[in-house]
Design a protein around this nucleic acid. Structure first.
Lengths: 185, 185, 185, 185
DNA sequence: CAGTAACCGAGACGGTACGTCCTGTCTTACC
DNA sequence: GGTAAGACAGGACGTACCGTCTCGGTTACTG
C-alpha cells in the first residue's frame, strides 16, 4: 500500500497524484484510506518515513564533530541527489505543513526531530570534548547546515554534490573570515 | 488585481485560494487571468514580486561583510516573521517550482537571483578588502545563510528573531570551533 | 431529477437551460449528470420520453384506417398545441440529432419509431381489410402525416388545431383531385 | 464573407461554428459581424438565402398540378439530398426560430413563404382548371408535402430520393384508399 | 489638399457555461 | 464486521464563446 504510493510519488510527484490513484494502485477502497490517513501528504510522509527521518538511526560517533556532521550532511545530500523525487515530495510536505498545523506537528516529529536529535547528540559530544566555543547557538548551526542543503536544492537549483556538502561543513566549522576573532557572539 | 490577490493570500493561504476567487475579488474574468498568468502560483509570485526579491534593491555598503550580511539576513527575517502569510505562501511557491520547471525558472529569476546577486556583490567587496579566506565557497555561504532562515521557519518551526539572525551571521563569519585551523574537515 | 429538468425546459427552453442549472435545480452534482447523460439534449429526451414516444402505447383499433390515423394525429396535435414547450424542445432535439449520429439513433429509437410502429400496425390492419390500394408507399404516408404536423408548427407557424388534423387525414385518405384515377402523376 | 460562412457551415455544421471562427475566416472583426447580424443563425440564413427560399424563383407552369408539385418537391428533395449540410443547418435554424420570435419571422419570410407562395400559385391554377375538389384545405396540403420531406430527412432518417418524392405527390393527389368517397372534408 | 469623420481590423474584456477532475462522505454487497 | 467498489454533492479547474468595448490605422469625404 505505502509501497504503491511511494512508486506513484516517484513517478508523478505529489501534486499530480490523487487519492483515487493511490487507492486504485493499492487495490484498496478510498474509504479505507481515509480511515487511516487524513490527506495524501500524510500518506507520502508515512511512505517516506524511514527515508526522511526514521526512528533516529543511531549515528556512529566518528570521534570529531566535523566527522559526525560530514556524515550526517553527506547522507542527506546523497538522499536528495540520488532520489530527486524525494526532494520534490518533501517540498510538498513542507508547503502542506504551513497550511495545516496538525500536519506540521506530525512532520516535525517524523522528519525534522530525528535528524536534529542526532545532530544535538553529536554537538553534545563536541561540547564535552571542548571542540566548540562556549555560547555557540547550536540550534542555529543545525538550521544552517540542513537549511543550506534545502536552499540549494529547492531554491538555488544548483549542484548538490559531495563538494558542496564539504563546503557547508567547512564554513560552519571554521567560518569564512581570514582572522577569526578570539571571542564571539 | 494583484493587490486583491495579495489580500486573499494573506487571509486564506495559497492552498485555499482558487482562481475563481481571485477573479471574483478583482472583478475580472477568469479568462483574463489565464491570458496573463498560468497558475495561481504565478499570480502569487507576481503579487509578492517586490516583497520577495524585487529588482535588486541596491543594498548599502556597510563597510564590512558582517554588516552587509547582517542587514540582508535581518531584512529577510523581519519580512518572514512580520508577515507570516509571506512565509506560508513562499512554501507553496517552492513546492510548485519542484513540479513545474518553467515556474522554477521564473521563481529563480524573480525571487532567488536578486538576493543572491546582492549577496555576491557584498562578498565581492569583502574579497577586495581581504576579509575572507581565499578559496571560500561563496555560493555555499549564501545557501547556508538564507537556507538557515527558511529551515527555521518552515521545518524547525522555531523562533525567528533578531537574535537568531545574528547567530547565523556569526557562525558563518567565524565558525563554531574553538581554535580555527587553517584547513578543515 | 428528470422532473426538475422538465420544469426548467418548460420555463426557459432548451437553448436557455444550462447543465449547471439542471444540476442546481435537482440538487445533484454536475458530475453525476455527466455520469448518466451525455448532453442536456439527452436529458430532455429522457425527461419527455413517455410524452414524446413512450413504449408504443397500444393504440386501440378503431375499425378503420381513417379512425386510427385520426386518433394518432389528433393526439400528437394536441400534445404540441397544449404544451408549446414540447414543440420548442423537440426542435432542439431534432437539430441535435443532425449533428450527433449517436443521439440521432437514440432519438429515433425513443421518439420516432414508437409512433411509426403504431402507425405501421394500423396500416397493416388496413391492408388486411383491403382498405388501401396495393402498392401504396406506407412509409411515405406516415412521413406525410407526421411531417405535416411538424411543418405546420415549426415552419409555417400556422394554427395547429383539430380542423387541421382532420384535413391532414382527409387528404392522405382521399387525395385532393376531383376524379381520382386509378394511377397517377 | 457569406461565402466563407457557408463553407464553414458545410464543413462543420451550425453547432460547431462560432462567430469567432466566421470572423477569422472572413478576415473581418467580430464587431463588424455584430453590426450586421444578430446571431450566427442569421448569418447562416443569409448565407443560404437563395438556396433555401430565394426571392420566389418563378416556377414554370407545367400545365397540371401534379406536374407543378412534382417539380417543386423534387427540387427540394434534391437540394437536401445533394447537400446534406443544408438539411443539417436548416434544422438548427428551425430550432433557433422556436426560441427567438424575431428570427422566426425572418425565417418565415425568407425560407417558408417563398415556397408556399409558389405552391399557392400552382394550386390557384389548379382550382381554375377544376383539378381539385372544392373545399380542399390547400394550406394543409402544402404543409403535408413539404413536411413529409423534412420529417423523412430529420426524423425518420430514411432515404430521400426521387421515388420518395413521387410517392408523396401521388398520395396527396389521389389518396391511399381503394374507393375514394364522392364527398370530402 | 489638409482636416476630419466614419469605418474597420484587431483583440482585450466581463461573463457564462462547458465538461473534467478530485475530494471526502456515504451506501451497498460481498466475504 | 470490515472492506472493495463506486455513487454522490460539492467545488475548482482550464477552455471556449458570447457580445461589448476600446484602440489605432486606414479610407473617403468635407472645407
Amino acid at each position: 500500500m505505502l509501497a504503491g504510493a511511494e512508486e506513484l510519488l516517484e513517478a508523478r510527484g505529489l501534486g499530480a497524484v490523487s487519492v483515487d490513484a493511490i487507492a486504485l494502485r493499492a487495490g484498496v477502497s478510498k474509504a479505507t484510506i481515509y480511515r487511516w490517513w487524513g490527506s495524501k501528504e500524510e500518506i507520502a510522509l508515512e511512505a517516506f518515513y524511514l527515508t526522511l527521518g526514521g526512528p533516529a538511526a543511531i549515528a556512529a560517533d566518528s570521534g570529531s564533530l566535523a566527522g559526525d556532521m560530514q556524515a550526517a550532511i553527506l547522507a542527506r545530500v546523497r538522499l536528495l541527489s540520488d532520489r530527486p523525487s524525494v526532494a520534490r515530495t518533501m517540498a510538498g510536505l513542507v508547503a502542506q505543513a504551513q497550511e495545516d498545523p496538525e500536519f506540521a506537528a506530525t512532520y516535525g516529529r517524523r522528519v525534522v526531530e530525528p535528524l536534529r536529535e542526532q545532530a544535538r547528540a553529536a554537538f553534545g559530544r563536541a561540547v564535552e570534548r571542548g571542540e566548540i566555543r562556549p555560547g555557540t547557538n547550536v540550534e542555529a548551526a543545525i538550521d544552517l547546515l540542513f537549511g543550506g542543503i534545502y536552499h540549494r536544492v529547492w531554491q538555488s537549483q544548483g549542484r548538490l554534490d559531495e563538494q558542496f556538502a564539504r563546503a557547508l561543513v567547512e564554513i560552519v566549522m571554521n567560518g569564512i573570515t581570514v582572522r577569526p576573532p578570539s571571542s564571539a557572539a
